[in-house]
Computed example of a mutant assay.
Amino acid sequence: MDVKLREVLPFSVSGLQVRTLNAAEQKPDTARIGPMWERFFVEDIFDKIAHKQPESFMYGVYSNYESDASGHFDVTAGAAVAAPSEGFAQIQVEGGDYLVFSAKGPMPDSVIQTWGLVWAYFEDNPQVCRKFATDFEVYTGPESVAVYIGIQDSAAFSRSSN
């Protein structure tokens, strides 16, 4: 898998938001992320978000982590905005170093498989530590996604990729 290191400048996203945890997402009756995305598409939320940045992609932002991958966190489905959009949640994506995992293929299977690769990468590379501040998915096309994972120390990634 090709993992890239990218520096990201802070930006804001407005959209729908749910609070969940990974254990709940494994069961259809407690999963909240899929239903949120379904509502996002059915109600054309992307087109209803005010103050959208020109040429904004769709984003899925993971934030407000309770602890690590096992705790509660927020997920926001939305668009990059220049100012808050009334009636929608607002999240500030932190600037800093991110590892980028890219995938192409039918959604949502492609993004779900990419998250599996993310978890495997961090399990296989314990010297690279996640920040658990903000992470995000950027959907650059109907079958194209990049998952950005915030990391604590970019030098640890450089050492792991040698």
Rank of each mutant, 00 (worst) to 15 (best):
G141E: 06
T76H: 09
E123I: 02
R32F: 07
V3R: 00
E25H: 11
S102T: 03
T30V: 15
E123N: 12
K27Q: 15
R6F: 03
A79I: 02
E25G: 07
Q152D: 04
H72K: 15
M36F: 06
F136R: 04
A89E: 03
K48D: 05
D47N: 13
W115T: 01
G105C: 09
S160K: 04
G15V: 07
V18R: 08
E137C: 04
A24K: 07
S161N: 10
V100F: 01
G87R: 07
S12D: 11
Y59K: 08
I112T: 09
T20Q: 08
G150W: 00
V118N: 00
F40C: 01
D68C: 10
R6T: 05
N125Q: 05
P28R: 14
V75Q: 11
D2Y: 14
E7Y: 08
L99F: 02
L99N: 02
D44G: 03
S160F: 08
Q17Y: 05
F73Q: 05
V93A: 05
A82M: 14
R6C: 08
T20H: 10
G96Y: 04
N64Y: 13
F101W: 02
I112H: 10
Q53D: 06
G141T: 05
G105S: 03
A82D: 15
D44P: 02
F132Y: 11
V3F: 01
V128P: 01
Q92H: 14
L117E: 15
M1C: 12
S102K: 07
L5E: 01
V61H: 03
P54Y: 00
A133T: 15
P126C: 05
F73I: 12
P142E: 06
K4D: 06
S144M: 11
A82R: 14
G71V: 06
L21G: 10
E143H: 10
D109V: 11
V147G: 02
V138S: 08
V18Y: 11
S160Y: 03
Y98I: 05
D97L: 02
Q127W: 09
E143D: 07
S85N: 11
S14K: 04
A133L: 09
S63G: 06
